[in-house]
Write a protein that binds this DNA or RNA. Structure first.
Lengths: 338, 338
DNA sequence: CTCAGCGGGAGGTCCCCTCAC
DNA sequence: GTGAGGGGACCTCCCGCTGAG
């Protein structure tokens, strides 16, 4: 176990430098920071390649933070793989057999993939399986609830005239003031709302990709909405079935909605930039700094970096010039990373 | 279509700033740079979310640049999804049903996934489906060839004493000087080499994940090796079957071996940093600069940024301090990006 | 309500084969 | 060689059902 001095890996455009020791020696843990959900501990104990790690981060983001179904993530991955096959097919001069050999896919299957991809291309339909952040059947629900069941103060929040005033009072007392002004729904109305939203979301899909709203799927959606705190069940239902309230104006898995979205966005942009770099496009800078900092000066250092970057971009910015993008992240280095 | 002034999005630790307009308006193309393989054009015509885009970049890197099988990429994706399910299972207090609802996976399947993941964890076996850059059955072949069939100048390069001297001469004339000093192999020897390597690579896998070396897989491997230029077929074979030569000491899909590896590595690190940022860990800086630059001053700007970063890291570096990492990429902004 | 089991169908990943151009 | 088709094995993602604690 040795000291890691400061390590710099900068690489600009065609100017290739030495990359033999891109992976510096390991370091003692010093892991007092993160834990993005327990899986970091698991990852640390396993031998995982970088590509696998990216996949795992993506899966966690989509499924745990975004609320996408297990199957939806898998389908998105296969769609990505199909696109890769399709581009190979074009590069091979539309030769099915060569494409088949290249990727170890049956010619028959290659043809099916071609057909599928081209159908999407002519329709210009979104092949986006993993919608922006959350599936529509989750993120759309608060909007639908608010538009279909608005509530005016002074009117009955639970539209059940057969209930006594005291029963109404007891139920309404359970609804916090900060909840959106919407009516309370019983289980059946709530499920109908899910059903309606699902059928709406299916309109965008081609018949082949449509899913029936099974009981299992309905329960999954209901669980997700309750689990995320978007919908809350009223404790003391005056009815024979449970009663629910909309607790938020947006679906939010863990309150980190915006940040997760920004993260994936940044990663995609960063990936694109790195792809240009890997292809040795001119005018691309890649930089990696591995260093240790006095913990008391950490925020000072980051603050200064922040200012440096702003000043730099300001200095060279020129309206109407060549479009540029710079993407940076700096933070704690994990044990295995270099 | 309006002008984009300079846009800065910096965010440090807990200091949240405004993110409402994270996505600035679109810009005219000005696309004179990239084309990482034709799929950029396709992507531009499609509506693709960021998560999908990352998946596509990954698929292309693994399958087209790395040479991984179509099925291998899919398996890696399912493995990642299974890990996500497993961590949810732990977070839910090992409650199978809740995990089932959360991700819309059958309880039966959840249990199978748990069992599978735990088996990997106790064995501490690599769950790395997508090995570092290329599959072993491709990258290992040049090494095996060189160790099993070295060639000494002066001896027969094609070990067939029955051939006439002129036949030997004609074959050897076809082998460029820069090829590694290895013997030439006929088709059967070549295929045996593939077979041997495959069985070697299978030793690392548990019995369940082992693949038989089918004819189809053998042809896929052979095609990949020839397509990448790692192995070259001799035009005028003096035998009844084709003859092959090893052309490189390493498997290299398109000569961008190192860079592709570095790219995936960087993306994984960047992703990790961003995850800390999304979780609002302290001491994380995220920065995005969207700006235009005078094309004539582009390299000057990048050079200066390069120097700025080095100087900054030098200034704050302190041996034995808190481990830090900074990852940056800067380059051409695509039309759709902001 | 949770856990456990079994049933089925559709579609995808793999394998191999033949026949016409 | 290539395209186009046939077959079958196995898995897994979906669905539904029942019964035991």
């Amino acid at each position: 176990m040795f000291q890691v001095p400061k390590l710099s890996f900068h690489d600009q455009g065609q100017v290739q430098r030495d990359f033999n020791s891109v992976t510096p020696p390991a370091e003692p843990p010093t892991n007092n920071a993160p834990n993005t959900g327990g899986f970091d501990d698991i990852l640390a104990h396993l031998e995982v390649s970088s590509a696998d790690r990216v996949l795992i981060y993506l899966a966690v983001s989509a499924m745990k933070l975004g609320g996408h179904r297990y199957g939806a993530f898998l389908e998105a991955a296969t769609t990505a793989a199909k696109l890769a096959v399709y581009t190979s097919y074009l590069e091979q001069g539309k030769n099915v057999r060569k494409t088949s050999f290249l990727h170890h896919v049956e010619p028959k299957r290659v043809r099916a993939i071609i057909k599928e991809v081209e159908a999407v291309l002519v329709d210009r339909r979104a092949l986006t399986t993993l919608s922006d952040q959350e599936p529509y059947y989750l993120s759309g629900l608060p909007y639908l609830w608010q538009s279909l069941y608005p509530w005016e103060p002074g009117t009955l929040r639970l539209q059940r005239p057969e209930l006594t005033p005291s029963e109404h009072q007891r139920v309404e007392a359970e609804v916090p003031l900060h909840y959106p002004p919407t009516r309370l729904l019983d289980l059946l109305e709530f499920l109908d709302l899910i059903k309606l939203l699902h059928s709406k979301s299916q309109d965008d899909f081609p018949p082949t990709r449509r899913m029936v709203l099974s009981d299992a799927l309905t329960e999954h959606i209901k669980f997700r909405l309750l689990h995320s705190g978007t919908v809350v069940q009223i404790e003391a239902s005056p009815l024979s079935i449970p009663v629910f309230a909309l607790a938020r104006t947006h679906y939010a898995p863990k309150g980190e909605r915006e940040r997760v979205f920004t993260m994936i966005d940044d990663v995609a942009r960063f990936f694109k930039l790195m792809q240009d770099w890997a292809a040795e496009q001119p005018g691309v800078l890649r930089a990696l700094e591995v260093f240790d900092v006095d913990i008391d000066r950490r925020s000072e250092a980051l603050e200064e970096l922040d200012q440096l970057l702003r000043a730099w971009a300001d200095k060279y910015h020129q309206d109407g010039g060549y479009p540029m993008l710079m993407q940076l992240a700096a933070g704690t280095r994990e044990a295995r990373e270099g």
